[in-house]
């Protein structure tokens, strides 16, 4: 249907430069490459970390309690040291990785799906639908999410799905606000109006024309939101509310370390370093994508 509109003439090279991988390679910054590289390593470790474990993550060895990491003076074969039960910290770190990444990724995906759908709906439907959605978004964003998350998880129980659903269902307004604002401006563009004039349905326009234009911005929000969810998950597990007892989550490892800050500081530094690394990775990708979209905008401008 949109074929009826005359496409601007463009040679193959220009087209490659302005779309897809060509554009990416041209404008990706050091930040983005670094972020993506670290993300690839983290994902590989999450998928195949079992092979790299040097001990069973849940099994303690009381004779090897509180051993310092290998690089410290008096270090042992445990290269990141052991905890108060003699469990190998490197293996526990690896075992906790899929949990942390999984909760953060799925809760971000849930928030993105609900939030984007409602944002598009608010942009498409003026009147009371829009008013109600925007009021709810304002209200939820101004409320400290952790307070309500603690209440819900405490009642609904620990575990992967209660935690993931709670975080996702409480945080979608971030996506709604962005999707709504962006969709309003996209819907004023000529190609969307042209599609409307040609009689395309409302859903077809939203899904086929508006949503694709939002994807770069949503990718940025996704990366930053993923970082927020990582922090939220580890905070809840740290408080003893998120991960079930015995799950080797990073937040729970930090919580264990509180009793041993004097005698075994590595028990705190190892999981803390892992959380910071994962969050910084997500922030690097987010910042890199911001620059990417901004520079592309300038190029097209």
């Amino acid at each position: 249907m949109t074929d009826a509109i005359q496409q601007p003439k463009m040679d193959a090279r220009t087209r490659r430069r302005l779309t897809g991988m060509g554009l990416f390679a041209r404008f990706a910054t050091v930040e983005l490459w670094l972020g993506l590289g670290l993300a690839a390593i983290l994902i590989l470790l999450a998928l195949f970390g079992d092979a790299l474990m040097t001990a069973a993550p849940g099994e303690g060895n009381l004779r090897a309690r509180l051993k310092p990491p290998a690089f410290e003076a008096g270090g042992t074969t445990f290269w990141l040291g052991t905890d108060q039960l003699g469990r190998d910290q490197w293996s526990r770190l690896l075992a906790g990785l899929p949990w942390s990444l999984g909760v953060a990724l799925l809760s971000t995906a849930i928030a993105a799906a609900i939030g984007t759908a409602l944002g598009l709906l608010a942009a498409e439907a003026p009147g009371w639908t829009r008013t109600v959605i925007n009021q709810v978004v304002d209200t939820v964003l101004s409320f400290p999410g952790l307070v309500i998350a603690i209440c819900i998880v405490a009642l609904a129980g620990r575990g992967f799905w209660p935690l993931t659903l709670t975080l996702g269902l409480l945080s979608w307004p971030v996506f709604t606000r962005v999707a709504y604002a962006e969709a309003l401006s996209v819907m004023k563009r000529e190609y969307v109006m042209a599609a409307q004039l040609l009689g395309a349905g409302r859903m077809a326009i939203l899904a086929g024309h508006v949503l694709p234009a939002l994807l770069p911005t949503l990718a940025v929000v996704f990366a930053f939101h993923f970082a927020d969810m990582l922090i939220a998950e580890s905070a809840l597990s740290f408080l003893g509310i998120g991960a079930p007892l015995g799950t080797p989550s990073w937040g729970a490892m930090l919580s264990d370390s509180r009793q041993y800050l004097t005698t075994a500081p590595w028990m705190m530094l190892v999981p803390a370093g892992a959380i910071v690394l994962a969050v910084v990775t997500a922030n690097l990708i987010g910042d890199g994508l911001v620059h990417l979209t901004r520079r592309r905008g300038r190029e097209r401008g």
């Binding site: 905070a235 740290f238 800050l261 004097t262 705190m268 959380i275 910071v276």
Partner: peptide, 13 residues
Amino acid sequence: GVPGYVVALIAIQ
């Protein structure tokens, strides 16, 4: 990227 409670633990330490 450093959560506040990590800052708290390091500060205490």
